[in-house]
Design a protein around this nucleic acid. Structure first.
Length: 1044
RNA sequence: GGGCCCUUAGCUCAGGUGGUGAGAGCGCACCCCUGAUAAGGGUGAGGUCCGUGGUUCGAGUCCACGAGGGCCCA
C-alpha cells in the first residue's frame, strides 16, 4: 500500500532525507557495482582547486557533469567518476603569501622554500569539506574518496613521464622570448593564463617628438601607451606602402601617416610634402634618452608590415626587450638591446632618475621629463583592454625572458585534426572560439619561476652543458650522485639531487623552474592512474573520455591543455563530447562579482527552493551555451510550474489509490481495452521516452527537459483534469482500474525519466510508488534501467486527433468567452467542422468536447452555410511556389469574387475558376483558407480549417439547468465553509422564492448526487449552517447539516 | 582592430530547409472551475521580430552594411 502524501511539500527537507537514504544504503556505490563489467562510459572530472569556496557557477557545471553519467548509468553503462583536485600553482602560492605576509620571492626564500611549500600543501584542502558538502547536497555523484591529487609524487612522476615523451620528440626548448610577465609573482604566464585576465583600463596615450638627425625643427611623431619603454627605444618602424606626410605646424615640421593627421594633430597645420614609408627607411633620429651606450647601430627608421594606420601616428617605436614584434625586428636588424627593468618590474640603476620605481608608476614622471624638454607633443589617457595577472591582478609587462617552451606550433595541424573529432556543445565552439584558438596557437610557455609546482625535470651538466630530461623516479635514482635524505618530487628536495652526466660524467643540476599548473590538469587522463608505472589497463580502458563538461572559460584552459597533451602524446583527442557552459549571470544579466555585491550564494537557493529546482532551472532555462540569468524568483517559478505540478499529480494519485486500496500488483487491463484517454496518454508517454532518449544521446539536456515539462503539463492539465471523476466514482470497475494503472505507469516512467535530472524528487516518487508495493524492485530509482520506448504503443493518429480535439475545445471556449456565456450555462448545440475525419470515429472524443464545452450535442457537419458567413484568404505557402510572379494577379482575382460563391464552388465542385487578365486560373480547396463569422444566433471561432459554432439561444430548460449547476456550485462552497469533509453526506435545506424552488424540485436528483445530499427538505429547520444565495438573480436561503 | 555568440511581448525564452493575422511560460486584465483546492483552467491586452539596404511573388528566417550587449583574442 502507498504511503499517504501531503500536498504541501518542503523540497529541501525531502532532499535531506533522501541524501540520508542514499548514504545509509550506499546507493551511489551500488549504482557503480551493478554495472561493473558492462561497457564503459568515461567521464573526466576537471579538477577544482579546493583553496577557495565553490560558487554558483560550480553548481551549474556540477549539475551538468552529473546528469549525463546518471543517464548513461541507467542506460546500462559503467560510469566511474573519479574526483580530482588541482593543487599546485600560483593561486595556491598567493594565498599562502597573503597568510604569511610575504610579498616577494626574496621574502619567500628567506622564509624557506621547504616551509613555504609545506604551507601550500596544507592550504590546498582548506575548503575540501565545503566542496564535499556542496557536491553531495546537489547530488553530484562523484567518487570523492579516491581522488587524483596533482601534488602526489605518483601524479608528478606521470607528468615527468609525459614531459620526457615530449622531450624525446624534440619539442621542448629554451629561448629568450618576450613573454607576458607578472612583476609581482615574478614569473612569465602562459597565453591561456593571460587570456584569463583582461581588464579595461586607462593608460597614458602619448605623442612624442623624435627629432630627425640634423634637422632640429623636424620630428617623427610617435605614439605609445607605454612611456616606460621609451628609454629602451632603439628604432622606429613605418609601413613601407603607407603614405606619410610632412606637415608644417607653427614653427615645427612633423612626419606622420597622412591618414592619421586629423586624429593625431591638434590645431591647424598644412601639408608640405607626401612620401611613401619606404622613402623614410634609413632616416636617423636623435635618441630621447642617453642612458646607455649602444654597441650597435640604432635610432633609425625600419620598414615593417605590422604597422597599421588604425590608431596612433603610423610610426611605431621599437624596444626589443618589451614586445614580441620589437624583439623580432631587433634580431632581424641586429639592433641594440636595452633592458633596464628588474624582475620586480622596477627600473634598475641603469636608469638613474627613476631607479627603483615600478615602471608603470614611472610613466607620469617620464611624461613630465619629456614635456620639460619639449619632446612631448600630446599626452592623454586612453581606454583599452590590457592583460592582468589572473590571480594577483597586477598589470602584466611584456618582457624578454629566458623560458622553456613546448613547440605547439609544430603540432598545430594535429591539434586541428584532433579537434575535428570532438563533438562540441554548442557546436560553434569547434570552428569558432576553440578552432580560432588552435589556428592561432603559439608555443606553450611551460616554465614558471616559482616554488609550489611540478618541478621541470631537466638537469644540465655543469661541465659539458649536456641536458637531460628525467622521465621517472627510478631513472632519477639510477643517475643520482647525491640524493637528499628526505625525498619527494618537489622543491627544494629535487633541487638537491645531483646527477652524473651520461656524456662526460660531470655533475648535473636541475634547472630552477617549475611548470605551468595547467599542464598538471591537462595531464590527468594519464596521471590520474600513475600511468605508465601502474594501472596500465585502467588507463587504456578510460582513454579517451566520452564526456567532459566545464565553463566556457576553460576553452583556453583545461579544454586546451587536455587536448594539447593528448595530441603531443598520442596524436588524438582525449575527449569525444564536450559541453562548454556559459556563465551564470544575475537577474539583470550582469556578471556576478564580489565588488558588485550581486553574488548569489548557492546555499540561499539550496536551502529554500532545493537542489532539484536549481538543477531543473539550469537544465531548462536556456541551452548550455547561452548565459543563464539566475534569481531566486526564477527558481521559484520552476518549482511551482514544474516540480509542484508533478508533485500535485503524484499526490492526487496516491490520495485516491489509498482510498480505493489500489495496488498495482494485479493484472493490468490490456492497453487495447483501456479507454481512449488512457491510450492517448500512453502514446504520449512512449513518444516522450523516445524523444528524451534521442535528445540525451545527443547531449541535448535542455530539449529533453523541455519535452518532459510539456508532458507533465499535459498529464496534469488534460489527462488528470479530464479523468478526475474516474478515480472518485464509487464503482470499482474496469474503467477505474484502467485509470489507476495508466496514471501509475505514467508516474513511474516519469520518475525514471527524471532520475538523471532531479534525482531527489524522482527518488521520492519511486520509493512510494514502486518500493512500497514491490519489495523485489531495485532499491533506488537510480538502480533501475532507463525506460525504453515501445514504438507499438505510439499511436500517432491518436495523438494527432487528440490535438484536433483540444484545438476544437479551445475554439469553443473562445467562442463562449466572446459571447459572454459561462461554461456553467449549458447550451443546446455545438456545430463543428473539422478536416480531421478521424474525429467522427471516436465517440469518446465527441463526448469529451460536449463535456468540456457543456453542450447537449456536438454535431459534425460538412456545410456551415446555415450558421456562418465566409471570407476567403489565399494560402500563400501553396500558391506562392505555384504562381510565383503571377501571384498578385491571382490574389486580386480571388478578392474580387464573392466568397460564398467561391466556398460553394470549392465545396461542391472541388475547385473554382477565377478570371484574370492573362486568362482563367483554377484554385483548389487546399489552396485557400476560409474564414468564418457566425450568423444571428450563433457564435463561431475558427482556425486552421477547424470551426466551432455555438448556438447561443437559451431555452427555459437550459436556463434552469444552468441555475441547478450554479446552485450546486454554491452549495459546495457552503459545505466547504461549514468545514465538512469531502466525503461527508449531508441533509440539504432550502427556502426561497418560487423560481429557485422550482429548479430544485426539477433537478432534485442531480443536485443531491453532486452535493452528496441524502435528503432535500423545504424549510431550514435543523440546518447547521444557512446562507442566503443569489442564483442568477433569484434569491434562496439554503442550509446544510452533516449526517453523522 | 579581429573572432565567436546574442538582440523576437513588461520579464525569461521557442521560432529545421524563406511562405504572409509572429509563439510559450511568467507577469497583467477579465472570466471560468471547484472532490489535486493557500491549487487549476480559459480568454484577452501587449511585439517597428535592433536598424538600414538587398535577394525574392514573399524575409523574424538568406546576404551586405551598421548599432547595442556578452565572451574571447590582439
Amino acid at each position: 500500500m502507498f504511503k499517504k502524501v501531503s500536498g504541501t511539500v518542503n523540497f529541501p527537507s525531502l532532499e535531506e532525507e533522501i541524501l540520508q537514504f542514499w548514504k545509509a544504503n550506499r546507493i551511489f556505490e551500488k549504482s557503480l557495482a551493478m554495472r561493473e563489467g558492462s561497457p564503459s562510459f568515461v567521464f573526466y572530472e576537471g579538477p577544482p582547486t579546493a583553496n577557495g569556496l565553490p560558487h554558483i557557477g560550480h553548481v551549474l557545471a556540477r549539475s551538468y557533469k552529473d546528469v549525463i553519467p546518471r543517464y548513461k548509468t541507467m542506460q546500462g553503462y559503467y560510469v566511474p567518476r573519479k574526483a580530482g583536485w588541482d593543487t599546485h600553482g600560483l593561486p595556491v602560492e598567493l594565498e599562502v603569501e597573503k597568510e604569511l605576509g610575504l610579498s616577494s620571492k626574496r621574502q619567500i626564500e628567506e622564509y624557506g622554500v621547504e616551509r613555504f611549500n609545506e604551507r601550500c600543501r596544507e592550504s590546498v584542502f582548506r575548503y575540501e569539506a565545503e566542496w564535499r558538502r556542496l557536491t553531495e547536497r546537489i547530488a553530484f555523484w562523484l567518487d570523492l574518496d579516491n581522488p587524483y591529487i596533482t601534488f602526489k609524487d605518483e601524479y608528478i612522476e606521470s607528468v615527468w613521464w609525459i614531459l620526457r615523451q615530449i622531450w624525446e620528440k624534440g619539442l621542448i626548448y629554451q629561448d629568450y622570448k618576450v613573454v607576458p610577465y607578472c612583476p609581482r609573482c615574478e614569473t612569465p604566464l602562459s597565453s591561456h593564463e593571460v587570456a584569463l585576465g583582461y581588464q579595461t583600463v586607462k593608460d597614458p596615450s602619448v605623442y612624442v617628438r623624435m627629432r630627425v638627425k640634423g634637422q632640429p625643427d623636424t620630428s617623427f611623431l610617435v605614439w605609445t601607451t607605454t612611456p616606460w619603454t621609451l628609454p629602451s627605444n632603439v628604432a622606429l618602424a613605418v609601413h613601407p606602402d603607407v603614405t606619410y606626410a610632412l606637415v608644417q605646424q607653427g614653427e615645427e615640421k612633423l612626419i606622420l601617416a597622412k591618414d592619421l593627421l586629423g586624429e593625431a594633430l591638434t590645431g591647424p597645420f598644412h601639408i608640405l610634402e607626401e612620401r611613401k614609408g619606404q622613402d623614410l627607411v634609413g632616416w636617423e633620429y636623435e635618441p630621447l634618452f642617453t642612458f646607455f651606450q649602444p654597441d650597435k647601430k640604432g635610432w633609425y627608421v625600419l620598414p615593417a608590415d605590422f604597422v597599421t594606420t588604425t590608431e596612433g601616428t603610423g610610426i611605431v617605436h621599437l624596444a626589443p626587450a618589451y614586445g614580441a614584434e620589437d624583439m623580432e625586428m631587433g634580431r632581424r636588424y641586429d639592433l641594440p638591446f636595452f633592458h633596464p627593468v628588474d624582475p620586480a618590474g622596477r627600473f634598475s640603476e641603469e636608469v638613474p632618475p627613476w631607479k627603483g620605481l615600478f615602471v608603470k608608476d614611472a610613466d607620469p614622471k617620464i611624461i613630465e621629463d619629456l614635456r620639460r624638454r619639449g619632446l612631448l607633443y600630446r599626452a592623454e589617457t586612453y581606454e583599452h583592454t590590457y592583460p592582468f595577472c589572473w590571480r594577483c591582478d597586477t598589470p602584466l609587462l611584456y618582457y624578454a625572458k629566458s623560458t622553456w617552451f613546448i613547440a605547439m606550433t609544430k603540432v598545430k595541424d594535429r591539434l586541428l585534426a584532433a579537434n575535428e573529432t570532438i563533438n562540441w556543445i554548442p557546436e560553434h565552439i569547434k570552428e569558432g572560439r576553440f578552432g580560432e584558438w588552435l589556428r592561432n596557437v603559439v608555443d606553450w610557455a611551460l616554465s614558471r619561476d616559482r616554488y609550489w609546482g611540478t618541478p621541470l625535470p631537466i638537469w644540465i651538466c655543469a661541465s659539458c652543458g649536456h641536458r637531460h630530461c628525467v622521465g621517472s623516479i627510478r631513472e632519477l635514482k639510477e643517475m643520482a650522485i647525491r640524493m637528499p635524505e628526505h625525498f619527494e618530487l618537489h622543491r627544494p628536495y629535487v633541487d638537491e639531487v645531483v646527477l652524473r652526466c651520461p656524456r662526460c660524467g660531470g655533475e648535473m643540476r636541475r634547472v630552477p623552474e617549475v611548470i605551468d599548473v595547467w599542464f598538471d590538469s591537462g595531464a590527468m587522463p594519464v596521471a590520474q592512474w600513475h600511468y605508465p608505472f601502474e594501472n596500465v589497463e585502467e588507463f587504456q580502458k578510460t582513454f579517451p573520455a566520452d564526456y567532459i563538461c566545464e565553463g566556457i572559460d576553460q576553452t583556453r584552459g583545461w579544454f586546451y591543455s587536455l587536448l594539447a597533451i593528448s595530441v603531443l602524446l598520442f596524436d588524438q583527442t582525449c575527449y569525444r563530447n564536450c559541453i562548454s557552459l556559459e556563465l551564470v549571470l544575475d537577474a539583470q544579466g550582469q556578471k556576478m562579482s564580489k565588488s558588485k555585491g550581486n553574488v548569489i550564494d548557492p546555499w540561499s537557493i539550496l536551502n529554500v527552493q532545493g537542489a532539484d529546482a536549481l538543477r531543473w532551472y539550469f537544465f531548462t532555462a536556456s541551452p548550455p551555451g547561452i548565459p543563464k540569468r539566475l534569481s531566486p524568483e526564477a527558481v521559484t517559478d520552476v518549482l511551482r510550474r514544474f516540480l509542484l505540478t508533478l508533485w500535485n499529480v503524484y499526490v492526487f494519485f496516491v490520495t485516491y489509490a489509498v482510498v480505493d486500496g489500489f495496488v498495482p500488483t494485479g493484472d493490468a487491463p490490456p492497453v487495447a481495452k483501456r479507454p481512449l484517454l488512457d491510450r492517448w496518454l500512453l502514446s504520449r508517454l512512449h513518444l516522450l521516452v523516445q524523444e528524451v532518449t534521442e535528445d540525451m544521446d545527443r547531449y541535448d539536456v535542455t530539449s529533453a527537459g523541455r519535452a518532459i515539462e510539456r508532458f507533465v503539463d499535459d498529464l496534469s492539465n488534460w489527462y488528470v483534469r479530464r479523468g478526475r471523476r474516474r478515480y472518485w466514482k464509487s464503482e470499482n470497475d474496469q474503467d477505474k482500474l484502467a485509470a489507476y494503472y495508466t496514471l501509475y505507469e505514467a508516474l513511474v516512467t516519469l520518475a525514471k525519466l527524471l532520475a538523471p535530472f532531479i534525482p531527489f524528487t524522482s527518488e521520492a516518487l519511486y520509493q512510494n510508488l514502486v518500493r512500497s508495493v514491490d519489495p523485489l524492485s531495485p532499491e533506488s530509482v537510480h538502480l533501475t534501467d532507463f525506460p525504453k520506448a515501445d514504438p507499438t504503443m505510439i499511436n500517432r493518429d491518436l495523438l494527432e486527433v487528440m490535438e484536433s480535439t483540444r484545438h476544437l475545445v479551445s475554439l469553443g471556449r473562445a467562442a463562449r468567452n466572446r459571447a459572454g456565456l459561462k461554461v456553467r450555462q449549458p447550451l443546446q448545440r455545438a456545430v463543428v467542422l473539422t478536416k480531421d475525419a478521424r474525429l467522427l470515429q471516436e465517440p469518446e472524443l465527441l463526448a469529451l468536447i460536449s463535456d468540456e464545452l457543456n453542450v447537449k450535442e456536438v454535431k459534425i457537419v460538412e456545410d456551415l452555410t446555415p450558421f456562418v458567413r465566409y471570407e476567403i484568404r489565399p494560402r500563400f505557402d501553396i500558391l506562392g511556389p505555384k504562381y510565383a510572379g503571377r501571384l498578385p494577379e491571382v490574389i486580386a482575382a480571388l478578392r474580387a469574387t464573392d466568397p460564398l460563391a467561391v466556398t460553394h464552388a470549392l465545396t461542391h465542385e472541388g475547385r473554382v475558376i477565377l478570371e484574370t487578365r492573362e486568362g482563367p486560373v483554377t484554385l483548389f480547396p487546399d489552396e485557400v483558407e476560409v474564414r468564418i463569422e457566425g450568423r444571428e444566433g450563433y457564435v463561431a471561432e475558427s482556425e486552421g480549417g477547424d470551426v466551432v459554432v455555438l448556438q447561443t439561444q437559451l431555452t427555459p430548460d437550459l436556463i434552469e439547468e444552468g441555475m441547478a449547476r450554479e446552485l450546486v456550485h454554491q452549495i459546495q462552497q457552503l459545505r466547504k465553509e461549514a468545514g465538512f469533509e469531502v466525503a461527508d453526506r449531508i441533509r440539504l435545506f432550502y427556502q426561497g422564492d418560487g423560481r429557485v424552488d422550482e429548479v430544485i424540485r426539477k433537478h432534485f436528483g442531480y443536485i443531491a448526487q453532486e452535493t452528496l445530499a441524502v435528503e432535500i427538505r423545504e424549510g431550514v429547520e435543523g440546518a447547521e449552517v444557512t446562507k442566503r444565495l443569489d442564483v442568477d438573480g433569484y434569491e434562496v436561503l439554503v442550509g446544510v447539516a452533516r449526517i453523522t
